[in-house]
Nucleic acid binder design. Structure first.
Lengths: 197, 197
DNA sequence: ACTACAATGATGTCAATGACAACTTCGATC
DNA sequence: GATCGAAGTTGTCATTGACATCATTGTAGT
């Protein structure tokens, strides 16, 4: 009759999982270590074994977020054939989808990134964004984008996509308009790029 | 010897002023009503007369933020001559300047905007953004931008500017690169627009 | 099997905080 | 000058994050 074993077994995962849900549904400010502990059926001190303080949990969430973002972007690229433009469309749409579905999480990810202590976070972020850089390189190879460092060439495009996501989460754009707006932005960007080449 | 008069005199303003500083320097999450009260030399219950709860203070900050943003944008437009392109450059730069200097505040402003209760916030936001819409209309009149609703035509541009600000506050772009990036983005956008016309 | 030991959780405590209620002081108005 | 509402004070409560100390359990080494 071991109603609840003394050891949870995978408390860390359970905490992160529940925390992701809370952040998505009620924002990061609503995240309470004690509430997480209660939901996991564990004492209020237990989470401390896995996360020394609240910020450590947020960092872990950010890290997991980058991993998932990278996976979703990669999946979008790979599911969109070989040509540059459809790949770009699919990837941008995937990014906006992530950014709007997990707006608060993305905020965490960005906020954690420029904190000094955030050790492995930078690497996780770079791994996620590597997908985008590869895509830019393909665009350059196909002559759709100007030459130069991919990071610089893609910056304006990335800013635009990120900005669209911000407008959606800020309520300045309806959800139904998103796809059209993304398509618009990409078409606009590519026109501007070709004119420069 | 009125060391401290019973009535502060303008507690509301003092609280908002100090709160703006705190938000700018340490973020909105670090804002404590009790700390504000202490700094103002007033009891912990006093702020309640002016802000029923913490959110009310945040809303007031957002409102003041929109007023200031609108003023800075207008000032940028008016200080940049009559022609569309320099006006656009100046306005975009002013927006990014605001967004990076008061990143946490801008976040508050966006977050508050799509909350139902936020009564007058929407109006404040619209007043601030009216400057941008007028500018878009001028660009259309001069043939630099495609025709159609200014709100739609300007959306991609606004997203890009907002996105650049996000990249800066996210640490993905150095402060020195900002001006160049903004100029790049605008040039890119205008090329794309002319090609469409 | 037995014993350390390290990992994981439980319990208790503290200071800070937001929210609320009840009381007090001040100043404007009649 | 009495009244009354606005502004401030004091006291309290539940919640929270952080921390210290203790309890339990699985596991490695013998």
């Amino acid at each position: 009759m071991s109603a609840r074993p003394y050891h949870h077994g995978n408390l860390r995962s359970a905490l992160i999982e529940q925390a992701e849900r809370t952040v998505r549904e009620r924002g990061a400010h609503a995240l309470s270590l004690r509430e997480l502990a209660r939901d996991a059926g564990v004492s209020h001190g237990a989470p401390r074994r896995h996360f020394p303080d609240r910020q450590a949990l947020l960092d872990a969430l950010a890290e997991a977020g980058f991993a998932r973002l990278g996976a979703e972007l990669r999946s979008a690229v790979e599911g969109a054939g070989e040509a540059f433009e459809p790949r770009l469309q699919a990837t941008a749409a995937a990014y906006v989808r992530f950014a709007t579905r997990d707006a608060a999480l993305l905020e965490l990810m960005f906020a954690g990134k420029h904190r000094e202590e955030a050790g492995t976070l930078h690497e996780s972020a770079e791994r996620a964004f590597a997908v985008l850089l590869e895509l830019i390189e393909q665009g350059q190879a196909e002559g759709a984008l100007e030459r130069g460092e991919p990071e610089r060439v893609g910056m304006v495009l990335f800013a635009t996509i990120q900005g669209i996501a911000a407008l959606v989460t800020g309520g300045m754009v309806q959800a139904e308009q998103v796809d059209g707006l993304v398509a618009d932005a990409i078409a606009h960007f590519l026109r501007g790029s070709r004119a420069a080449a």
